[in-house]
């Protein structure tokens, strides 16, 4: 009886958390299929599936281009972050050198500054580099957001890998690059996949830099484009369009999570060293 009550309580708790997490998305989904005055009907269930908003999102502006921009920026930022972070993590986690700890703290310190505090400085930097209103400029800025935590997470994981593996590879005649790419990297997979995912999401959702460092529609990314969606008149906020666009741009993230899920395998190091 008590066990049943406990199970029931647990189930209710899960339900509550699930509802809290999913309701906003559900609401967006339902709203995205409504148009006109239906938008202001408080009903929980959709009356009819009206795909007009989805058409409008793509016809009113070049939303496909916007999504492509976002994918390009997020993918490049993730890729560059990982390559740099793996190298940095090897140095910070494996190589003994003076000032290693201070360097780690500095890297963590970089992520301490609020975006808004570095915004104007970053703007100057990007303009000086001639990258204003370009995607590379945005990628550079976003790296500041993703690098600190990717380096930090991978350094922690790198330290956990048995040192003998690396030494065995060196004794086997491998170069440092071979050791990192053929021995350590495959073992880092369980850490790499979620870190990459987080970096991608951070870059995908980034708004402030994208708003400030891009101007034209050709370089706009998803969050900015959605925020700048305009309705029929100045007074009208096009809820249906916003929700349709939001639903569309959720799909890549969900797809990524599903794809990476398979890669997140734990216990890969089992059998490496005894113990």
């Amino acid at each position: 009886m008590i066990r049943l009550a406990r199970h029931l309580g647990f189930a209710l708790l899960l339900l509550a958390i699930g509802a809290f997490a999913l309701f906003p998305f559900y609401h967006a989904l339902v709203t995205s299929f409504r148009s006109g005055s239906f938008l202001f009907v408080p009903a929980m269930l959709p009356e009819a599936l009206d795909p007009r908003n989805y058409e409008l999102v793509f016809t009113q502006q070049d939303f496909g281009r916007t999504i492509l921009n976002s994918v390009l920026v997020a993918a490049t930022v993730t890729g560059v972050s990982l390559v740099l972070a793996v190298g940095a993590a090897y140095a910070l986690g494996r190589v003994r050198f003076r000032g290693r700890y201070a360097l780690l703290l500095t890297i963590l310190g970089v992520s301490m500054f609020p975006q808004i505090a570095v915004l104007s400085g970053m703007f100057e930097l990007i303009r000086a580099l001639g990258l204003y209103d370009t995607l590379p400029g945005l990628m550079l800025a976003n790296l500041m957001l993703t690098l600190p935590f990717t380096i930090w997470v991978l350094t922690t994981f790198m330290r956990e890998l048995p040192k003998e593996l690396e030494e065995a590879a060196y004794a086997d005649g491998a170069s440092a690059l071979t050791v990192v790419t053929r021995v350590l990297l495959p073992l880092l997979w369980p850490a790499l996949a979620p870190t990459a995912l987080l970096a991608f999401i951070v870059s995908w959702n980034e708004f402030l830099f994208a708003l400030t460092f891009t101007l034209s529609e050709e370089t706009r990314t998803v969050p900015v484009a959605i925020a700048l969606l305009s309705g029929g008149s100045r007074q009208e906020l096009p809820w249906g369009l916003v929700m349709a666009a939001s639903t569309v741009v959720t799909i890549p993230i969900v797809a990524l999570v599903v794809a990476f899920q398979r890669k997140i395998v734990s216990g890969l190091t089992a059998g490496a060293v005894k113990g």
């Binding site: 048995p162 593996l165 030494e167 590879a169 060196y170 004794a171 086997d172 491998a174 890969l268 089992a270």
Partner: peptide, 28 residues
């Protein structure tokens, strides 16, 4: 180490866990 012409066997074996026996042996 790779220029010294040595090979080493470790106390903890230090086999590469993601490689098969074949790949482990052929790695060097």
């Amino acid at each position: 180490p790779r220029e010294r012409g040595i090979a080493m066997v470790f106390q903890s074996y230090a086999l590469y866990p993601h490689m098969t026996v074949r790949e482990n042996i052929a790695f060097g």
